[in-house]
Simulated scan of single mutants.
Amino acid sequence: MILVFGKTGQVACELQRQAEVVALGRDAADLSEPAACAQAIRDSDATCVINAAAYTAVDRAEDEEALATVINAAAPSTMAQACAAKGIPFLHISTDYVFDGSGDAPWQVDDRVAPLNAYGRSKLAGEQGIAQAGGRYAILRTSWVVSSHGNNFVKTMLRLSQTRDALTIVDDQIGGPTPAADIAATLLRIAAPIGAGQGGGLYHYGGAPWVSWKDFACEIFAQAHRDVTVTGIANQDYPTPAARPRNSRLDCTRLRQDFGIEAPDWRAGLARILSDLEAAR
Rank of each mutant, 00 (worst) to 15 (best):
G129P: 05
G200M: 09
I139P: 10
V154Y: 08
N235M: 11
F221Q: 05
G206H: 10
I93Q: 02
W210I: 01
G150Q: 11
L3K: 09
S143M: 12
S32D: 13
L158F: 12
Q10D: 05
R112G: 00
E65P: 00
L140N: 04
L160T: 01
S248K: 14
G126M: 05
D265N: 15
R226Y: 04
R246S: 06
Q198M: 14
A75W: 00
L270N: 09
L277V: 12
Y55R: 01
K123C: 09
R121W: 01
L255R: 11
I273V: 15
P239C: 13
A28D: 10
D110H: 13
R249M: 15
V22G: 00
F259V: 06
P177F: 07
L274I: 11
P115I: 01
L202K: 01
L167Y: 03
G269S: 05
V22W: 05
I88W: 00
Q81T: 12
A125G: 07
P179Q: 04
L31R: 01
A54C: 10
I233D: 00
G25N: 11
A52N: 06
F90W: 05
R226F: 02
S77Q: 07
G150N: 12
T163A: 14
R141E: 07
A263I: 07
V49K: 08
T8D: 12
I273Y: 11
S147V: 03
S212L: 10
L91N: 00
L202Y: 03
G197I: 15
R256L: 09
S44C: 14
N235F: 12
T78W: 02
N151W: 04
G199P: 03
M1I: 13
W213L: 11
G175F: 05
Q16C: 08
G135R: 08
Y205Q: 02
S44K: 11
S161I: 03
T8Q: 13
A54L: 05
A66S: 06
T253Q: 15
G25C: 10
Q162H: 09
S94N: 06
T186G: 00
D258C: 08
V230F: 11
D59P: 13
S143E: 13
L3E: 07
